[in-house]
């Protein structure tokens, strides 16, 4: 199989399969998690929950007081690489083209030079965050093998995307194939790993805030 045919398989059967698994996994896991339910709270609420759920989503989005100074890598690094991933995915021209193809929506893209800067910053930040995770005993203790695998799975699409756009190191055909296959791996593992936090993080925070308010601890 030549590089061309390999790319063809990745753009065809590979991508179709990955998207199918992704869509199926998202619905499956969402339904499974949210239909587990909770024990009915029959106690009278201490107070009306109000906007505590929404407020908790917002409040936990911010770093706790003083923590940025105490652990800047975790907080600033976390903000930067998450934001970087969002910008690179949603505001680069080829991705918008893909989204328009998939769901018919599109919006203006950032200039390629801006995307380049964001990509490089994201890559560097991810490396810094990884080094910090390995160097700090507590973080190292809390990290399992799967966490490092997921770091690689998240890192590779960004790196391969940058190399592909700039035709660096390898022939374009191989780079594009590597970029697409790294994205396919990401799509496949996304619903079944910790990466699923991208979907569950907001409802979870809302639920915690809402429940705490019922118990008398509004925020």
């Amino acid at each position: 199989m030549s590089e061309f045919q390999w790319l063809s398989w990745i753009r065809g059967v590979g991508l179709q399969s990955a998207v199918a698994i992704f869509c199926m996994g998202i619905v499956w896991r969402t339904m499974e998690i949210y239909t587990l339910g909770r024990k009915l709270d029959i106690a009278e609420p201490r107070r009306i929950s109000g906007a505590s759920g929404w407020h908790t989503i917002y409040r936990r989005f911010l770093a706790p007081l003083g923590m940025i100074h105490l652990d800047p890598v975790t907080y600033i690094g976390g903000y930067v690489f998450h934001l970087g991933l969002l910008i690179v995915f949603f505001l680069s021209e080829p991705h918008i083209h893909l989204i328009r193809e998939l769901i018919g929506l599109s919006w203006p893209a950032l200039p390629p030079s801006m995307i380049d800067i964001v990509t490089i910053v994201t890559l560097i930040t991810m490396i810094v965050v990884l080094v910090d995770r390995v160097r700090k005993p507590l973080k190292r203790f809390l990290s399992g093998f799967g966490d490092y695998v997921l770091w690689v799975i998240t890192f590779l699409p960004v790196l391969s995307g940058y190399l592909t756009v700039h035709h660096l190191l390898l022939p374009y055909t191989i780079l594009l194939a590597l970029h697409m296959i790294s994205v396919e791996v990401l799509l496949i593992v996304f619903p079944f790993t910790k990466l699923f936090h991208a979907v569950t993080v907001w409802p979870s925070r809302w639920f915690n805030g809402n429940t705490n308010a019922r118990k008398g601890v509004p925020v």
Binding site: S8, R11, G12, L15, Q16, V19, A20, I21, F22, C23, M24, G25, I26, V27, W28, R29, T30, M31, E32, T35, P94, H95, H97, L98, E101, L102
Partner: peptide, 21 residues
């Protein structure tokens, strides 16, 4: 940068996911 053919089975995959869920 696009799939070779339009992804037409996404709805089927969503339904399959709903069934598994």
């Amino acid at each position: 940068s696009l799939p070779e053919k339009p992804i037409g089975h996404a709805v089927n995959a969503l339904m399959a996911g709903a069934m598994v869920g």
